[in-house]
Simulated assay, not measured.
Amino acid sequence: MNPHPIATTFTRLFGGQPLLVRSPGRINLIGEHTDYNEGFVLPAAIDKEMILAVGRNGLDRCRLYSLDYQQQLEVPLQELRPSQTGWANYLLGVVDQLQKAGYPLQGFDCVFGGDIPMGAGLSSSAALECGTAFALSELFDLRIDRQLLIRFAQKAEHTFAGVQCGIMDQFASVMGKEGHALQLDCRSLDYTYFPLQLQEYQLILLDTQVKHSLASSEYNTRRLECEQGVAAVRRRHPHVQSLRDVSPAMLQEAAAELPPLVMKRCRYVLDENERLLQGCELLKMGDIPGFGHQMWGSHAGLSSQYEVSCSELDFLVNFAKEQAGVAGARMMGGGFGGCTLNLVKSANKEAFLAAAGPAYLQAFGIALKHYEVAIRGGTSILNPDQVA
């Protein structure tokens, strides 16, 4: 995103030259519903981002302006509480976390905006939280470790936005590396970068423009089903803490005690972790078609075993399977709507998109949106020469 409108709006509203920070959204290449089972995920930071302009104001308050909503809010630093202004909570929650941790914040001004599509599952909220935490650390010379910034951003979403998110979104936004995917161990938070050398391929998101109401209730049900599986295995293997510790053989031993549906859910999680680990090895070898094969398998598992897909997502993945130059596709995110992630040869991109829109419109009467994304680095300062 061009940071110039953010910088000029800051100067117009508050005066002076601000510190500029970019904070990216993210995709998840593979590894869905594995995070709360202490498994692995494989996110990457993308070139859709939030831009924040910040500066000290010498007051006892923060003055916030959303360029996208054209709204301003002023809040005393000693009177922080969740706001009726929804967008403000992602910033105020971070300020609250930093103050509670004892960091000496002073009054500041902030103008922000971004080009991360809202509601598409690209983690615009995490990008804003992480950008705020990083910007304030830089502005007030707090020198906060990046992994601690991630924790503050996650806790801000829990407390002020009221969303009990995992840590993947914030981790990817802060720790992303250009041209690489980030394999994150959701138990230890150890991470490893894997090269994402797409060569003749590129990443395209197809946005279903739907979000079915089943999402939250079914999410909770899946967690309970996984916990039920773990409890049954633990009776034979007391060391087991999560599905991360369970082998296929151990799960099979507990089959007589578990409903077939729970067995199916647990098998998916075991398979998805294995697909991710194999996929990372394929990325190391530069085998993009091989990685795409793992993506097809991931979607099949999410649709038929974990049952968190929907007709719109399945339609788009099945459509992609029939198109020339598509190495892989899968639903991305919690399910029941959102985007599919597609690995498409650049030479076939135009034909792929030209066919996808009309096919989806005919099937569902909904105009399909698409986003082309590239892999970028994590949250960082923008230098003056990066402002057009």
Score class of each variant (00 low, 15 high):
14 F>K: 02
130 C>D: 08
53 A>R: 03
90 Y>N: 03
69 Y>E: 15
85 T>S: 08
65 Y>P: 05
114 G>T: 00
112 F>L: 15
8 T>H: 14
39 G>A: 10
45 A>F: 01
13 L>N: 13
39 G>V: 02
52 L>M: 07
50 M>S: 05
47 D>R: 14
99 Q>G: 15
138 E>H: 06
37 N>Y: 06
128 L>E: 07
60 D>Y: 10
43 P>D: 13
133 A>H: 01
138 E>Q: 15
119 G>A: 13
61 R>G: 05
86 G>H: 13
102 G>S: 07
61 R>M: 12
108 F>Q: 00
20 L>P: 01
94 V>E: 11
61 R>N: 06
116 I>Q: 08
72 Q>S: 14
69 Y>L: 15
131 G>H: 06
44 A>N: 08
85 T>C: 13
7 A>Y: 01
112 F>K: 05
56 R>Q: 12
49 E>Q: 09
90 Y>A: 09
20 L>N: 03
24 P>M: 13
60 D>I: 08
49 E>L: 01
27 I>M: 07
94 V>D: 09
68 D>V: 14
73 L>F: 07
7 A>V: 09
108 F>P: 02
9 T>C: 06
51 I>R: 05
102 G>V: 06
57 N>G: 03
36 Y>V: 04
126 A>N: 12
93 G>M: 08
68 D>F: 01
138 E>W: 00
124 S>T: 06
88 A>G: 07
120 A>Y: 05
43 P>H: 08
106 Q>Y: 03
5 P>E: 15
102 G>M: 08
130 C>S: 12
37 N>R: 11
10 F>G: 00
16 G>K: 08
109 D>N: 15
93 G>E: 09
112 F>V: 14
20 L>Q: 00
97 Q>L: 11
10 F>S: 02
70 Q>E: 14
62 C>K: 05
122 L>F: 04
70 Q>A: 14
74 E>P: 07
87 W>S: 08
71 Q>Y: 00
88 A>F: 05
55 G>F: 00
34 T>Q: 03
36 Y>L: 04
39 G>D: 04
35 D>R: 06
108 F>A: 04
56 R>E: 13
101 A>F: 03
27 I>D: 00
69 Y>M: 15
79 E>F: 02
100 K>C: 06
76 P>N: 10
14 F>C: 11
67 L>T: 05
21 V>I: 15
69 Y>S: 15
73 L>T: 04
79 E>L: 11
16 G>P: 05
25 G>T: 05
109 D>R: 09
133 A>W: 01
112 F>E: 09
97 Q>C: 10
9 T>N: 02
114 G>A: 09
91 L>W: 02
33 H>D: 10
9 T>M: 07
23 S>Y: 10
61 R>S: 14
17 Q>G: 11
105 L>A: 08
96 D>C: 10
129 E>A: 06
22 R>N: 13
63 R>P: 01
13 L>H: 12
81 R>Q: 13
57 N>K: 02
80 L>C: 10
82 P>C: 11
106 Q>K: 11
25 G>S: 13
44 A>L: 10
104 P>N: 11
58 G>R: 12
9 T>L: 07
66 S>L: 12
105 L>P: 03
20 L>A: 04
126 A>E: 04
119 G>Q: 09
6 I>Q: 01
110 C>H: 02
92 L>Y: 02
